[in-house]
Design a protein around this nucleic acid. Sequence first.
DNA 1: GCGCTGCTTGACCGTTCGGTCAAGGCGCTC
DNA 2: GAGCGCCTTGACCGAACGGTCAAGCAGCGC
Lengths: 178, 178
Amino acid sequence: MTESTRLFAERGFHPTSVSDIVTSLGVGKGVFYWYFSSKEELLAQLLQAAQLDLRRRQQGAIGDEPDPVRRIELGIRASMQWFSEHRDALTLFQFAATEERFAPVLRAGQEVAVDDLVRHLKDAIGTGRAADQDPQIVAYAILGVVQQLARTFLFSREEPVERVADVAVAFCLHGLES
Amino acid sequence: MTESTRLFAERGFHPTSVSDIVTSLGVGKGVFYWYFSSKEELLAQLLQAAQLDLRRRQQGAIGDEPDPVRRIELGIRASMQWFSEHRDALTLFQFAATEERFAPVLRAGQEVAVDDLVRHLKDAIGTGRAADQDPQIVAYAILGVVQQLARTFLFSREEPVERVADVAVAFCLHGLES
DNA sequence: GCGCTGCTTGACCGTTCGGTCAAGGCGCTC
DNA sequence: GAGCGCCTTGACCGAACGGTCAAGCAGCGC
């Protein structure tokens, strides 16, 4: 699984052939089609497994923290950490978003994470700790920040995770104003 | 050009064959290879043209606005507007980021926009109008917000551009705090 | 009318792809 | 050891791909 994710991320989904995958695994082609009905199905399962793992990490980090704003912060930091350890997964997510048949799988998983975030946001708004903006839009905005920063600074440049996470948190909580 | 962008965005780069492209244009295959040396080159040109157009829109919107924070706001609104009119381009950008050979083209164009944004941010920080965070990271964060919101709300849902742009601006300027 | 250049055609080519399948181990039960 | 599932193999298939090219055509200067 990890190996296929790496291949897809490095060379792209379509340019990576099933032969490439089985060769890198040192097995025959038949074994691939014994476990997966198609190359598409493999990608779908890879996506789902990655999303599940990311979500678990987020929930583990948040624990039973009572403060909604702090819950959001912990979620951001956990996500950034997870992406820094699973850079290939982010590339997969990004590719999946560009092809109609994978987008639904991706969207389903993303919506679960967003719904959580929306709950925290509503708590924060309800207790006057956050501005009264549409929580769903804000949730996606946060998601965009995390993914973009992970892609740019964790992958291309080799910035330390904490530094990037700090700026991400500061930006999401206070914007660019001082 | 617009037609090829649409095809790539709708069906994906690899699944769209050169035959598909020329058929949709009602021309022969030779004419394609007369103007482009390969399918890859077409995509590269599509990317560059789109980036140039987006950049022009941003600069046109900013004009000679003196206030750096307001310049950033105008840039965000212009980008959101542009994406709402060129949804296919965003899908292309996203795909290009997932394949090693297109990433450089994409990065080059993105860096130009980011450099502009960084300049405005430095102005804002210098005059005490923005918090003293690493301007480059913040610039990419803003970029992430705009792209994610465009993708989610302008394409999947059919939200009015202004509403999404308002939240994007509010979030980027003030974060989620009230 | 002739020739030339710039553009256009689509049949064609070599290659590679996703996917199939007849065949063959390997370990289990009885 | 016979029989039987479960897994594994890799040669093989039809289809489709990106890219080529010999041939043709329109327009223009002469």
